[in-house]
Write a protein that binds this DNA or RNA. Structure first.
Lengths: 152, 152
DNA sequence: TTCGGTGCAAACTTTTTGCAGAGTA
DNA sequence: TACTCTGCAAAAAGTTTGCACCGAA
């Protein structure tokens, strides 16, 4: 599935969500959603707001926050916190696979990975504790290749 | 290793750390550290502050924050954020084994687990991405046994 | 006596909320 | 028209900082 297919699919899903919940489509929302769907990785509300400001639209920061919360409820965005004090939002289209993150503590690079063996072990652990898992969070923190060679 | 052995060892390590870094031992610090070492699990500064207030000491919240940061630098506490907006501090004595957390989203119960298979797989993943891992974070979120039966 | 620690209040940071006016259906 | 959305500014909420005084070494 290509990235743009997923965008299209998500926009449809978003439109359907709006319709079903009596929410309106507005100029601001469409711009925010467009920008959000275009951004790679893990954006903060502030970053998104800045990008939109750059295109001389005058969208308020509060609106960006509100829209991201809306997307989260719609299941199109996922909230994540790496330990830097910001809430980040990640594109989370239907059909997009779950993945985890490996974060460089020096330059902030975030790479994504998938590992089914780990996921299966997590389920085993949950069973042992009699928990039913609905979500999880796995982040590896360290130093990336570039930063290692810079220091060496 | 029993819990109290670990306390003793940590207090020594703390004292050594203070000496080495020209920091002073004060009545407030000793009380905070004592209370922190006694608390199970994952405390917030506010919680610790409340516990100390209960024992009619008049320690300021800012001092609790400052002391926890000091403990973190000393390697005796570990900062953790579960997604509830609070920074939590966890006892992290030398000799204490690393563990991860499984969190109930209904009642807030946090259990700890260790799984070497998962840890090994994490190292494999990091190698594949040419990262050197220094830390990681794994949290499973779901519903615990009690809450499941309550709902059923 | 020196200098780090403390308490208090104010400042800061990120996110949320109240409200009056604008825009959608 | 009815009612939601938006922008702004103010409020929240958690944490940090400035400053004058206190106290450990």
């Amino acid at each position: 599935m290509s990235r743009s297919d997923t965008f299209a699919e998500s926009k449809n899903k978003y439109a359907r969500y709006l319709a079903k919940n009596g929410l309106r489509s507005t100029a601001q929302r469409d711009l925010i959603i467009n920008e959000f769907f275009k951004s790679e990785g893990h954006v903060t509300a502030e970053e998104l707001h800045l990008k939109l400001r750059g295109k001389n639209s005058s969208i308020g920061l509060a609106t960006v926050y509100r829209t991201l919360k809306t997307l989260e409820s719609a299941g199109l965005a996922h909230e994540r916190q790496f330990n830097d004090g910001f809430m980040r939002y990640e594109f989370c289209a239907p059909g997009y696979r779950h993945h985890d993150h490996i974060v460089c503590l020096e330059c902030g690079l975030v790479e994504e990975f998938e590992n089914n063996e780990i996921e299966n072990l997590q389920i085993k652990v949950a069973n042992k504790h009699n928990f039913t898992i609905t979500d999880h969070r796995l982040e590896l923190y360290g130093v990336c290749e570039r930063c290692k060679s810079k220091t060496a």
